[in-house]
Nucleic acid binder design. Structure first.
Length: 360
DNA sequence: AAGATTTGCAACCGCCTTTCG
DNA sequence: CCGAAAGGCGGTTGCAAATCT
């Protein structure tokens, strides 16, 4: 037996609400409070389905709803939360005061999703998408960079690969493609990190990188396009396994020829500072070749207080002097935001990387 | 200037979960 | 425990506004 409809639809109005209807609904709820949506329309004198009244109230008429363009902080938070929660719009909305799940869903579908796609990032998994890459330019750039040829070959055999490593490879390729002059940049970086004494490593700078066993679901959060973004108080993220958080390589790392992964600085906070280098301990589950990649070091002497968790949790949009600049946050165009996202990705393939080690 | 196309968003639909008798 | 009702959620649609040709 099918369920009875939520209300008798005969004679009930559909479509856009009129100001008069809104007023009736507001007046009724102000007098009696929300709830009992089934009887509300009748009592309020509305020719509407109760469900329609509830949606109108929760998505539009509620007094605490914030309308207007999403701020940079909000967008950033949405991306981060979506990478963790997926399409749980109500859960995301619960962390964005004044925003409704419907509004966030619409904004995601019309703005953020498209931008991620333009940046070659799968909006579902938050991972780079091979099928969106410009393979011709990729291959041409590979001709000037032999290790990339190997990686391209590696990708052809993706079915044989550990998915995590495949993701790493695809990420490297896609971002290399976006940053053609990365080599020169990285030479500088390599020089910077070649002297281990220059980057004292404190215990607090270490974290465990837990390579995921094959087939394990990867929390997409670590491949968010805004990896340095806020994260929301992770303790509040009931569904997010904070302990697993760094189990993926952060999307904004780069790989030096010396096998180090370089996490760029948060641009909005420090547009000119050098990347951070973070040391990580390899876990038993990590394939040996990946261990080569996961040798993080803190950046430099003038960043003694650097902590990885600060990268993961410090809001890009926090009220730091640079970032709190309202001109940046509030007037950022789509291009600026796009640039902001893609600029995180600076990769270089380690020459020492032997793809054979990655084969299953 | 006008028609075509794209974009943005409010609203609807149907399914799932929770509540309650 | 069971079934119906209500509430909640995510996906989709339809239309007006904006943009393009």
């Amino acid at each position: 037996m099918g369920r009875a409809p939520c209300c008798d639809k005969n004679g009930l109005k559909k479509g856009p609400w009129t100001p008069e209807e809104d007023l009736k609904l507001i007046n009724y709820i102000q007098a009696h409070g929300p709830g009992n949506w089934r009887t509300l329309p009748k009592n309020a004198g509305l020719q509407r389905c109760g469900k329609s009244c509830r949606l109108r109230w929760t998505n539009y008429l509620r007094p605490d709803i914030k309308r207007g363009r999403f701020s940079f902080e909000e967008e950033e938070t949405i991306i981060q939360l979506h990478s963790i929660l997926g399409n749980k719009w109500s859960a995301i909305a619960a962390r964005l005061p004044g925003r409704t799940d419907n509004e966030i869903k619409n904004y995601w579908n019309t703005h953020i999703r498209k931008r991620l796609l333009r940046n070659g990032i799968d909006p579902v998994t938050h991972a780079p998408r091979l099928d969106l890459l410009d393979l011709s330019s990729l291959l041409s750039s590979s001709l000037c960079n032999p290790p990339l040829i190997n990686m391209a070959n590696l990708l052809k055999t993706q079915a044989l690969l550990n998915p995590e490593l495949l993701r790493l490879a695809s990420t490297i390729l896609s971002l290399k493609n976006e940053n053609p002059d990365l080599l020169s940049q990285n030479n500088l970086q390599e020089n910077q990190i070649s002297d281990p004494n220059a980057f004292p490593l404190s215990h607090s700078n270490q974290f465990q990188v837990q390579a995921q066993s094959q087939g394990q679901q990867v929390p997409a959060c670590t491949t968010s396009t805004l990896p340095c973004g806020p994260l929301v108080d992770q303790a509040q993220l009931g569904q997010a396994n904070v302990g697993d958080f760094p189990s993926n390589l952060p999307s904004n790392f780069s790989c030096s020829n010396t096998g180090q992964i370089i996490v760029p600085p948060m641009e909005s906070q420090d547009l000119v500072s050098q990347p951070h280098y973070i040391q990580c301990n390899s876990s038993p589950a990590m394939p040996a070749p990946l261990e080569k990649l996961c040798h993080f070091q803190p950046n430099n002497g003038d960043d003694q207080n650097f902590r990885f968790d600060s990268i993961m949790s410090t809001p890009l949009s926090s009220s730091t002097p640079l970032n709190s600049s309202s001109t940046f946050v509030n007037s950022s165009s789509e291009e600026e935001r796009e640039s902001y996202c893609s600029s995180f990705f600076k990769f270089e393939l380690p020459e020492s990387l032997d793809i054979n080690d990655f084969m299953c």
